[in-house]
Nucleic acid binder design. Structure first.
Lengths: 138, 138
DNA sequence: ATATCTGCAAATGGTTTGCGGAGGA
DNA sequence: TCCTCCGCAAACCATTTGCAGATAT
C-alpha cells in the first residue's frame, strides 16, 4: 500500500458540487446516486469523474466509504468515525448517535495482542419506517 | 429480497470439499484461495462451482461472508457471529475472542428507535506479526 | 426418473484507467 | 505555461448465470 502520491489538489467545480451533494444528505448514497444528483447541477459530468473524486475525498479524509455486503460502496460526507444501522428490509443506512466506545479497542488489544487503531461497528435489523409499514392496520 | 427458494439440497463431493477447506483454515480466505485449495483434491472443479457453493453455504448458515473494504469477499467457516481484526498492513484477518456485547444492541435500539437484530464489530490496526517485523533489529 | 448440480464460457455490473483536450494556479 | 482534471470509452475483475450434460436421491 503505497502512500497516495498526489501532488497538488486543484479546486474544481466538479469536486465542489460532489462534496456539497455528499454533505447535503444523510442517506449514505452510492456513487450512482451522487452522479444523478450532481448531474442536476452539472449535466455533462461523467461517472468516472464521480468515482475519481469520491476516491480523492475519501483518501484525503473529507468523506468516508462504507462497504457493506451490498454490491456497491456507499459514501458518507461525515468523515468522523461513527456507528451505522442498516435496515435489512429497505437497505437504508442510518447514523447511530452513540459515543465511540474506545474501551472495545483496549479489550480487543488485550485479548489479541495486536495493535488496534480503530474499530467499526454496525447494527442490523428493521428500521422504524419498515416496522411501522408492516403493522397491518385493521 | 425474496426468500431464497431452494428446494432440496443435494449432497455433492464438491460442496463437501469446499466446506471442509473452509472449516480447516482460520485465514478467512477469499473465493480464489478456496478454489486453489479445493483443486488439490478436485482438479476439475470450476470457479463458478466455488462461488455457487459458497453462496449456498452462506445462505444456509453454514458459513459467513465478510465484506470489508477490499475488492473481494472473504469467507469464514465459523458461522457464529464473532469479531474480527483486520491488519491494515498485511491484510490478514484474525478472530477476536471477545464475548458478543449484546448491550451495544440495546443501546443502539434505545438511541435510534430501530429494531436491532444483530451487530458486527471489526477492529483495524497492525497485527502482532507485522509490528514485530517492523522492529528494526540492530 | 428427474430435479439439482457441475464445468464451461459468456455476461454482468461496479469501478478504474488511458487518452487527448480543457482549465485552474 | 504547466500540470492536474475532465469527459469519454474501453478495460478490469470479482461474481453471476445460461446451457447442456452429469449425477445424487
Amino acid at each position: 500500500m503505497v502512500t497516495s502520491r498526489r501532488g497538488f489538489i486543484r479546486h474544481t467545480k466538479q469536486r465542489e458540487v460532489i462534496l456539497s451533494v455528499l454533505r447535503g444528505t444523510d442517506t449514505h448514497p452510492d456513487a450512482d446516486w451522487v452522479y444523478q444528483e450532481v448531474r442536476k447541477v452539472l449535466p455533462n459530468i461523467s461517472l468516472g469523474t464521480i468515482y475519481r473524486n469520491l476516491r480523492i475525498l475519501v483518501d484525503s479524509g473529507e468523506a468516508m466509504e462504507l462497504a457493506f455486503g451490498s454490491s456497491s460502496s456507499r459514501f458518507d460526507g461525515d468523515a468522523e468515525n461513527h456507528y451505522h444501522f442498516i435496515c435489512e428490509q429497505c437497505d437504508n443506512v442510518y447514523d447511530i448517535p452513540l459515543p465511540l466506545d474506545h474501551g472495545l479497542e483496549n479489550e480487543a488489544e488485550e485479548v489479541s495482542g495486536h495493535q488496534v487503531a480503530s474499530h467499526r461497528l454496525e447494527f442490523y435489523g428493521v428500521c422504524k419506517t419498515c416496522s411501522n409499514a408492516s403493522d397491518s392496520p385493521r
